[in-house]
Design a protein around this nucleic acid. Structure first.
Lengths: 161, 161
DNA sequence: TATTGTTATACTCTATAACTATA
DNA sequence: TATAGTTATAGAGTATAACAATA
């Protein structure tokens, strides 16, 4: 009967989704761990610190602590401690804002900008290397499929930026 | 000239790889964070503990600490502490091995097995839900593409399991 | 009162290394 | 000597909540 077939199909699809998820997770984790390890070994930096610098590199005029917190999706206290560390190494700077004296603008220093350029170059090379089993056209396909995944559920697909 | 075109192409591909990686990372992280949060809220369990139980569920006869360590890709000390916690909650048990008295066999208790069954069911439902923006055929496509990525270089595409 | 950012605290996961017991 | 597992310690990242300064 059709309903039995549909049930079988549903179970098969569920298992397929689970297998897909495990593969997605393990592929991503493997690449992420490799990048994390190389950033540590070659530049003595962690991924969150690298990410924070990447955010600042995109915004030369700098960002407030709360904006960094929002973009990195971590709470404010954590941003404080990451910025503290990077400031100690003179890679970023806090600048007072005249308009609102509660708030700082955080930006890369010149040293930070050049350090980040070197790291970003290496980072891009690693990504190219680690994704190289896929041909350019396959990468494009993957990019499209992940784009569909990105936006949320079909029934409630509100984009929060 | 052709060499200039090739350089342009290489740069474009590099950027495409980087964009793909960022999308892959963010999609995976978003799903993982959602699962982590729901496991915490609904079952008061962390992902590593869930993963350890999943390993044991697949091996009813149980696993040694060192085998668990190998499969979860974390060092022995961590496995000890995770097993300690799960044992305290009576979800897993350590059993002496007659053959080698240095070694334990860790397995799910009956309570652990039934608790895991409930969690795994919910977990599978979440995965199905979170991947639902992709149709079954798209999920299959994604699975294949990630398979290529998984095994390493294109010249050596062995499937490990 | 609300907001920006800091500080203090606690928890989990992780690795390293020293240690015990057994092989 | 080598191996299985534990213990102790340290460090990173995370969240929560109390706090100070400013709006």
């Amino acid at each position: 009967m059709a309903s039995v077939d549909m049930e079988k199909r549903a179970h098969a699809d569920h298992h397929a989704s689970l297998r897909l998820w495990l593969r997605l997770l393990s592929a991503t984790t493997r690449i992420e761990d490799t990048i994390r390890q190389r950033l540590r070994e070659q530049f003595d930096i962690t991924l969150p610190r690298f990410d924070l610098m990447a955010q600042l590199e995109r915004e030369p005029q700098g960002l407030s602590m709360s904006e960094l917190s929002r973009r990195m999706m971590v709470t404010g206290g954590n941003v404080t401690s990451i910025v503290d560390q990077l400031e100690k190494e003179q890679l970023v700077q806090r600048q007072m804002q005249a308009s609102d004296r509660r708030s700082y603008t955080v930006s890369l220093t010149d040293a930070g900008r050049s350090a980040f350029a070197a790291m970003a170059l290496a980072h891009e090379g690693w990504v190219v290397e680690l994704l190289s089993p896929l041909a350019a056209s396959q990468q494009e396909q993957l990019h499209k499929l992940l784009g569909t995944l990105k936006s949320g559920t079909p029934t409630n697909s509100k984009e929060t930026k």
